[in-house]
Design a protein around this nucleic acid. Sequence first.
DNA 1: ATTTTTGTAGAGTGATCAGTCAGTTAATTA
DNA 2: TAATTAACTGACTGATCACTCTACAAAAAT
Lengths: 187, 187
Amino acid sequence: MEKSEVILSAALKLFVEYGFHGTPTSKIAAEAGVSNGTLFHYFKTKDELTVALYVHVKNDLNNALALRQQKTKDIRTRFKYLFADSIKWSLQNYKEFYYIQQFHFSPHLSLVSKEELERQTQLHLGLLQEAIDAKLLKPLPVELIIQLVGSQIYGLHQYLLEAKLTPAELQNNVDEALELLLTMIFI
Amino acid sequence: MEKSEVILSAALKLFVEYGFHGTPTSKIAAEAGVSNGTLFHYFKTKDELTVALYVHVKNDLNNALALRQQKTKDIRTRFKYLFADSIKWSLQNYKEFYYIQQFHFSPHLSLVSKEELERQTQLHLGLLQEAIDAKLLKPLPVELIIQLVGSQIYGLHQYLLEAKLTPAELQNNVDEALELLLTMIFI
DNA sequence: ATTTTTGTAGAGTGATCAGTCAGTTAATTA
DNA sequence: TAATTAACTGACTGATCACTCTACAAAAAT
């Protein structure tokens, strides 16, 4: 594991627990097992570290989603996989998922370049456009669909995280929620 | 306007723009037009101010929602009103709405007492329980429904805020999204 | 009329923290 | 091997900031 990744990993843990503000760089360095100076060798500022962590986590999520997407042709199936894989990832990486939300509602978001933000929605946007072209979706604005799907994923995640369920119940809930979502936006 | 409200209002403006961290108490006092000491006369600590602002904003939202709820009997209609009024408030008070999210994804949330958090969901929980008792809803877990409705509201809000629409288009979108939501969770 | 409480001010303080710097060690290149 | 660069250290600093303190004015209570 690269040292910069060790630092990012330490930052994630502390940011999620204490927030950006409540986490001094000195604590991050200590948690990562490196000196204060080393942290600033890899990341010029604390803000840069914060943004780098966001990009890193987002890439991780996108990579996890891309796997089955590339192997699947049928649009509706890809849609299902996108939803199911998102939920799966969000539960297995709930700290990372929390950090994404936390970051999203902070002024740090404005430090991320437009291109980077765009790059990160390509997967979703592409699939949605295909679905629209194939006339599979209800005639709703694309941005609205993105928002609704995104928040549906978030809502389900939040519920599943709190409710301690057996794997079978969990799978059942995911399937149901997915079905609800599909009937909501598919024709 | 009470001086404590002036301070809260100043804090809201700055917190939303610069975040908790990026907003020194001195700037809040200056924005509110009071001295540094006065701020701490009304709020013992910055954390207390932060929490007080959250409670204040949430009460405001709940009051806005309660108005039509009390005058309406039919459960489905009350559900519609709750949804429509939430969206309306979130657009008219988008800074307050943003602050709620921001607060939600910060460690400050843990500073709010359980009773206060409970008090703030009573309106929603009550309506939902009535709907369940009247067997109007699909047999889904209450917490899941709450999460789904909440995130649906958030998703629609986010979309409407970005898309600059005419009042008629806006109303249309709200109606459509509401219809989608109703078919999703009502029998 | 006098005491007490409350509201307001703003300079001051101690602690914290992001980021620097001077210097050491390890790795790469010439 | 020598020279150059990169990785790394940790003490240090300048600035910032939450909060205090003393002082005073206005209002309320007695």
